[in-house]
């Protein structure tokens, strides 16, 4: 591994920390800074990062479904061409009442990202008036990229499988039959074959 020179990252991190006291700033590696913010601080932070810290490139805007905590994590990945550093600005929003504000006024292309997240996760971006149909067509039911959307069920409900493959056997099951072995109920989920 190269020795990592992270002076500029330290500078940026300190500056962010001094401006946003509640932010959790963490230098992940060289050229990567992670900033965790309260969700109401995201718009001022992005505006500050863009206009004062030269992070003028919105490289990516993503959402991660942490269903266990009932939260969505929004991740803005912004890049400064001048400093050559990427900031991952993260915040968590409520999953039930999935709502956030648009950042279209900062980056014109944020509109597209917001359209996607609206469609796939059902997040409503206030201020974005173009949250119309984007990738999906006539979609009903829960947004498909939420973790609780069952793709296998969707596929079996909507498509038929080709005939002629019903004779497939599970190897582990077949071996237990040869053995006359009984796998107790509590152990069954540990059969790796359940990967499917």
């Amino acid at each position: 591994m190269k020795t990592q020179n992270i002076n500029i990252e330290k500078e940026i991190a300190t500056e962010i920390q001094n401006t946003f006291h509640t932010a959790e700033v963490n230098i992940k590696r060289n050229k990567r800074i992670e900033v965790k913010l309260r969700n109401d601080l995201i718009p001022p932070f992005l505006s500050y990062a863009k206009n004062y810290l030269t992070f003028n490139h919105l490289a990516h805007f993503s959402c991660v479904d942490w269903i266990e905590q009932n939260e969505f994590e929004l991740v803005y990945i912004i890049y400064s061409y001048e400093k050559g550093v990427i900031v991952l600005a993260k915040t968590r929003i409520d999953r039930e009442k999935a709502e956030f504000v648009t950042t279209r006024h900062l980056w014109y292309q944020a509109e597209t990202y917001e359209r996607e997240l609206h469609e796939m996760f059902g997040i409503n971006f206030k201020g974005n008036d173009r949250l119309n149909e984007f990738i999906l067509e006539d979609w009903e039911g829960i947004p498909p990229y939420r973790r609780d959307f069952d793709t296998v069920k969707y596929a079996t409900d909507n498509f038929y499988t080709r005939p002629g493959r019903e004779d497939a056997k599970d190897v582990r099951e077949n071996v237990t039959k040869i053995n006359k072995e009984e796998i107790p109920e509590f152990a069954k989920e540990y059969s790796v074959r359940s990967l499917k």
């Binding site: 190897v171 582990r172 071996v175 237990t176 040869i178 053995n179 006359k180 072995e181 796998i183 107790p184 152990a187 069954k188 540990y190 059969s191 790796v192 074959r193």
Partner: peptide, 24 residues
């Protein structure tokens, strides 16, 4: 490393649930 096929259990006289406990 285990692939979980369970073929090993054929040779175990008591047929222990080998892939399952290794997976655990």
């Amino acid at each position: 490393r285990c692939l979980g096929c369970g073929i090993c259990t054929e040779n175990c006289p008591v047929h222990m649930h080998i892939p399952e406990y290794i997976n655990a």
